Amino acid sequence: MKDDDILRYDRMVEGALRGVVRQAIQEVVGEVAEDGRLPGDHHFYITFMTDYPGVKIPDYLRERYPGEMTIVLQYQFYDLGIIEDKNGGRISVTLSFNNVPERLEIPLAAISIFADPSVNFALQFQPLGDDDGPDLDPSEDFDDDDTSNRGGNGGEKTGEVVSLDKFRKKDT
């Protein structure tokens, strides 16, 4: 083993930053359960790779958003939580698409952008390669260890998928 392979600070930083996403979701779950909405003006934009192993979304959404999709958690979402698993955990949430509730499960490792525009906060993650993340088996059933923290939210607004281009800096 080469000396520069011993301490992979890039992996440590990625893991720590994904921990921020995990903690934000976990802290919000309690707030959502108490008063039915995210605290203050908080809302989350979560962009994730739809073809990442362990991502569970309906086929029609995967076809409509090949490669990448963004969800917004602000008003109408249910059963938000983190499901712990041996692969680093995943976000679970039910959103409404055209008034049809759909359950989504998104491994934290599949997230490419996490943003909370209400406080001008955003994280952009590097894609995890084969040797960068946990050992993932695409054929594995991710439902086995459902030890989640969940809350819910009712509201009149519907879930939406948006482009984050308006939040990205333009090259001048």
Rank of each mutant, 00 (worst) to 15 (best):
K56S: 14
F97K: 06
Q76T: 02
Q76K: 13
G89M: 12
F77P: 05
Y45C: 09
V55S: 13
Q126S: 03
T70I: 06
I83T: 05
K56Q: 10
R150L: 11
L73W: 12
H43K: 04
V100P: 01
V29W: 02
F142T: 02
D144M: 06
E105Y: 09
P117M: 07
Q76I: 05
A109H: 12
Y52W: 15
L123W: 13
V20A: 03
G88W: 14
T70K: 05
F44W: 13
S148C: 04
L80A: 07
F114V: 00
T94K: 11
R90Y: 10
I46E: 10
L108D: 05
L80T: 08
V21L: 12
Q74D: 13
Q74C: 02
P127A: 12
L136A: 10
D144K: 11
N87D: 12
P127R: 14
D137C: 01
D137G: 00
P107T: 03
G40F: 13
R18G: 10
K56D: 14
Y45M: 07
V32I: 14
Q23I: 08
D135L: 07
S96G: 04
Q23W: 14
S118Q: 06
R103Q: 04
L136W: 14
E105W: 11
D59H: 10
L38C: 01
Y65F: 15
I25A: 01
P39G: 10
Y65G: 08
Q74W: 01
H43Y: 09
